[in-house]
Structures are given as C-alpha cells and as structure tokens.
Amino acid sequence: MRIEHLKYLVHIAETGSITKSAEFFHISQQGLSQAIKRLERQLGVPLLNRQVNKISLSEEGKKLTAKAKDILLIYEELLMELQPSIKAHGQELNIIATPLLSKTILQRVLFAFFKKYPQINMNIVEQQPHKIIDQIIGLKNAVGILSARKNFLNKYAVLNRRDITFNKITECGVFACAAKTLPIANKSAITTGELIKYPIVVYNSEHHIQMLQELFQNDGKPNFKVVTTDWDFYQKTVASGIAVGVSTYLAKDFQKNGPFVNVPIETGNEFNLLVGYITPSKQPINPFLNDFIKILKKLPLGNSSR
C-alpha cells in the first residue's frame, strides 16, 4: 500500500470522478484506475462500485477512505516535524482576518511571531467573516481570524462544518469607547438608548455596520458621524471627542493608545462576540502555523472596562 494510492482514493471519494481526479494528479485515467485496482488486489476487497458513467465507494471503500484521511494528515504532519528548521526559509503562512482584528491584535501576533521566525513569509488578506470561511478552505498553511456573533456562526453552520474547524479564543461584550472628556466616560455602564444620543464613528466594514444597525434597532436611527477605513483616523476621532466608537476586542488597544475610557454597553449576551480562528480541516497544521496560533491564543483578550 502506497501513500499515493490513498491520496487517489480520497480524492475520488471527494469528486466522485476518476476523470477529475486524474486531471488533478496529472496522470492518465488508465493509470489512476490501475492504481486503485492494485490497491484492491492488495486488500482483497472492492473499493469502488463501477457503473457506466458513475463511480461510488463500496462499503469497504468508505471505511478505508475515512481511515486514509487520518493517515494522510498524520503523514503530512510527520514530514513537517522531520524537516530541519532551515526548511522554514521560503515557507509562507496565509492569514485571513477581519479588518479590525487585522489592525489590532494581529499586529501584536506578527511582531512576536517574526522574532522567532524572521525567515517566514506572510500573506495577509482582510476579509469579512463570511468570505474568510469561503477562502480558507483548500489553502495550505492558513488560518482565518475573526470575531462574530453567535447568530452568524449558526447562520453559516460554522461550528458543525467538516471542512473547517473553528476554535474559540474568548468571548467579548460590547463597549462604548469614548474620550475621557465626554460625560459618558463617568458611567459604569450605558444603555443603547443613552448611547444613541452621541455621534458614532464607524469602521467601514459590512460586518461592523450591520452590528451597529442591529444594536440600535429598537432606539431609532444612530448618527454615524464619521465612517472610515483609516484606523488611525478612527482612533483620533474618538480621542478628540468628536464621536464615540463601539467595539469589543479593541478595548485594551484603546487604553494603550490614547485617552480613552471603555464603558460596557448593557446588551445582555445577545451581542457578545466570539473571537477565534478557523483552519481547514483537511490541511495539516505545520509547526510554524502552530506556533503562530499559540501566540494568538496567549494574547490578553476579553472583556475590559476601565
């Protein structure tokens, strides 16, 4: 039994087509068919049900395919662990993150990561949460970093999908981020009815705008004073007292970067956001990506106020 034969069988199971699998592996259909037949002879059982214009797995084929996926993952992980550290040269990690996370916690992860792996190349893409889910599938050495409400995770069945794995890091409440000169800064908590009286600065992303619209849906139309994708300008707008920001995971960043106060918004758990990362289930996690994830999980995230 050869590793290549297991790869062939798994791919045929996923595509239901010898033709597509042969094209994928750049071999002839005849060569692929013969490889599967050799595997069947070695095991002494039929792995495929062969009909005119239709291929399906036999019961034995289904059992072997399930085990083969585990074997292939272990095999890839073993190869990576056996590689000397010099192999890190030229390696590339693919990071897909929501815009605000990309400009906040991701930066801290990168600084710590590059101290250990200066030779690793990094490909970073900013996307909305639903696009992260679509793009992460099939990527090698990839991780998606996102924050989303539970209703979003349920809508896209993120927690129950087999092709991706979602790992929760923390759960955050919602905060109003305001300059210390504003009256709101003296409150221990604030309702959405009180908050809507203040102009709001909005980070111009579909996900953030939708969250704000739902947050104020029972209080009227909020005054979106400033809508921007410039993160520095966003923070300066809050610092100047021109408008109030609404966020979760950014609370600690605000405390470090300016004269801000983070006031919890009374929303119950309905608007809590889960901060976590997504990896493709069918791709092994190499040692470099594994260290990246370890750094990410160690960040001091979570609810914070003053």
Rank of each mutant, 00 (worst) to 15 (best):
E270R: 12
K168A: 09
N49I: 10
N257C: 00
P118Q: 08
A112L: 14
Q213E: 15
K297T: 13
Q235C: 09
V201A: 00
N286W: 05
L153G: 07
G258V: 04
T65N: 05
I36Y: 00
N154K: 11
K297V: 15
K225P: 00
F166T: 03
N94I: 11
Y234P: 00
T228C: 07
N257V: 03
K116D: 13
I295P: 07
L39Q: 09
Q34A: 15
L101R: 04
T181H: 07
G245D: 06
L82P: 10
P222L: 01
Q91P: 10
I145M: 00
F224H: 02
G245N: 05
R50G: 05
L47I: 09
F25M: 09
L47F: 01
P99Q: 12
K7P: 01
E14K: 14
F292S: 06
F292N: 07
L73M: 15
K252A: 08
K67R: 15
S58D: 01
S188G: 09
Q34T: 15
I137N: 06
S304P: 00
I293L: 01
G193S: 14
K294Y: 02
L73I: 13
V261T: 12
L9N: 00
E266Y: 06
Y249Q: 12
L79K: 14
E214D: 13
V246L: 01
K115F: 09
A22M: 10
G31P: 07
G44Q: 02
L146G: 11
C177G: 08
Q29Y: 07
T19V: 15
N262D: 04
V174N: 00
I133T: 11
S58F: 02
I190T: 05
L296R: 05
D219W: 04
P264V: 05
L215Q: 01
V174S: 06
N53F: 06
N303Q: 06
A142E: 03
L274A: 03
K197A: 14
V238M: 12
Y117A: 04
G220H: 07
D230H: 01
A157T: 05
Q30T: 15
I105T: 14
I295R: 02
A13D: 12
K115M: 13
K252V: 07
P99S: 12
A88F: 08
P287T: 10
S305L: 10
E194P: 03
S304Y: 15
N218A: 08
Y8V: 09
S17G: 02
R306A: 09
D134S: 14
I278G: 09
L73W: 04
S33H: 10
R41A: 09
L48F: 06
I120P: 10
V52C: 07
G268I: 12
G302K: 09
F216T: 02
G31S: 14
L47E: 06
K256P: 04
L159M: 15
N286F: 01
I209R: 15
D219M: 03
G302V: 09
V244A: 05
G144V: 09
E171P: 04
Y277A: 01
Q283W: 02
N123Q: 12
K180M: 07
C172D: 11
L100F: 00
G245A: 02
E266L: 14
F111S: 13
L110R: 06
E270H: 04
T65K: 11
V226P: 02
R162M: 09
D253F: 12
